[in-house]
Design a protein around this nucleic acid. Sequence first.
DNA 1: GTTAGCACTCAACACTGTCGAGTGCTAACG
DNA 2: CGTTAGCACTCGACAGTGTTGAGTGCTAAC
Lengths: 341, 341
Amino acid sequence: MRLDERKFMILQAIIDDYITTAMPVGSRTISRKSGVGFSPATIRNEMSDLEELGYLDQPHTSAGRVPSVKAYRLYVDHLMKAARLSGEEKKRMQEHLNRRSDQVESVIRSAASVLSDATRYTSVIVAPKLGSLRIKHVQLVPVAERTALIIIVTNAGIVKDAVIHIPEGLDADHLYNISRTLTEKLADKPLDAVRQTFAEMLRDAESNRRLLGDALNAIEQKLGGQDALDVVIGGGANLLNYPEYSDVEKAKSFFAVLESKDKIRKLVSRGGGMEVTIRIGPENGVPELEDCSIVTASYRVGDDAGGTLGIIGPTRMNYNRVISVLDFMGRALSEALSDRK
Amino acid sequence: MRLDERKFMILQAIIDDYITTAMPVGSRTISRKSGVGFSPATIRNEMSDLEELGYLDQPHTSAGRVPSVKAYRLYVDHLMKAARLSGEEKKRMQEHLNRRSDQVESVIRSAASVLSDATRYTSVIVAPKLGSLRIKHVQLVPVAERTALIIIVTNAGIVKDAVIHIPEGLDADHLYNISRTLTEKLADKPLDAVRQTFAEMLRDAESNRRLLGDALNAIEQKLGGQDALDVVIGGGANLLNYPEYSDVEKAKSFFAVLESKDKIRKLVSRGGGMEVTIRIGPENGVPELEDCSIVTASYRVGDDAGGTLGIIGPTRMNYNRVISVLDFMGRALSEALSDRK
DNA sequence: GTTAGCACTCAACACTGTCGAGTGCTAACG
DNA sequence: CGTTAGCACTCGACAGTGTTGAGTGCTAAC
């Protein structure tokens, strides 16, 4: 038995219907649809075939049918027609995104909320690994008696800074000199290499040990520690709008997953490339979310570092729309984060 | 009819029981409690009196009784004995809070999560109004061809910075001079006055118009715009653990309130002072949350600016513990934010 | 003043029958 | 031979029913 034209059509109709209603769909419903010229009985026969082929599941004997993971896969890979976002919508997203575009972190936060608002699902954005950005220059600026700001400027134009303590008696000139040395030593090195280079400097330089140590700590904390933005989630409560989560227990376990960075990271560990990746149901590898799908795309910062943005929703999500939104936002985000000189 | 000793005791027992079980409590339950030497029948008589006095409600004829708002009020104002946090617990909270103490924003975020973890309710922290902090000095640092970092140091040691665009051809010396001028003009003025002073400078200074305008925009955005941290919420999903929210609709409306900054702000608009404020049920003024209580305390940054921290939970929340946690965290947070030289 | 006894109330629960949506199968139709 | 009408069957949803148990209020006795 093969999937002929008509089976495709019927399957598509079932999926479309199920995506909007979340109710098992019966033969009558399909038969009534415009564009389908067959009686319920015929549809039933076809549905029976589709079930045998593994594209449909039946919750129980006298219920309608529900698309299986296999069906969604087929749908996503072959049946789906790409949705176009209206220009107006694109514009609106852009605006909401651009409004705050000073720090990487706040751009990402706003992107997450734009994503979840636009899709009505839950969004996840993993911050870029900034480690591969290269340092352009480093500067120490005195701010108070024994405090300075260390500023690191990278090739992507992103600035990281941190407040550090400095030994007494270091005046602006001193700091300026140290800055020059630091810049010389660090220029063109990736941020990842800061630790090592600092360590070397600590070994060599007798004086200013304290200063260098503090600076190193501060920077490390910014880049890789608690302070570094990691994964941002938007619209967690959105999923409560779907009947799949009308059970509080389910909702709770969903929120529990959202709070576990490990699981989130696992969820969005991406397939690579700028392409949109779709993981349907159990494919996502997190058992608690086996009836969720996750769609991810990626974005870049400058030419090196990149991160992932994604949408988590029920398996019957509107893949169509989600894909276009992610695709668009991936580009928009890359632009917002890279074009900052 | 007056509230005698025994009525107090019984009321207290009822409240205690209800707070832990969330089930209407009957006369038998109270009678069985150690320390109560009366039969259910006697308790019933007393409960009947208490109901008449407005301290108890009866969901329906043959159910147990439930404390009324008036009862909680009495409990909170007179019956409750202050809980002591164990040293161990205090230490744990301190540690979780202190771990990241570089930027105001991240300290507040971590405080929110400490609060919600410690209480198992939802926490809200309103960021301090930084506008009343006074400027100590201002500095422009070149970071790239046409970009500079503007750094504002305040008397509380808090540093705000923003990336701005600068006109071509301004070298480090120029910027240094401008910084000096800015510092002179702005020193000792509150951040709130920046706008006005800048405006004056814009009028006077013929050159560097662009630069000043950009700087003003950037700073404004940082202080009062989208970028300024406003209100942070922690543990929103915590409330799902309580039977009060086993209904998804209720949970949804709760989350809706959490997403509305206006309502949150209304919720935590504080009664003033370092004192802990308690609003029970409808007292909080937000109809959607009429069966939630909110307990707030405040914290300070330096000597001027202050913010509010609070806990939202069901009316039958563990006021006792919540109050001690808030009190402790209020101090801890003030300390963490002020002691930063 | 306290308590035992008793009739009463009401939510929760399990059970039952009905209804309707949906199915599979078979036979008839074009 | 594909399509369709007809029919028996299945099963969840729902409403109605009786039972149980927790809890109450009242009264009379201690």
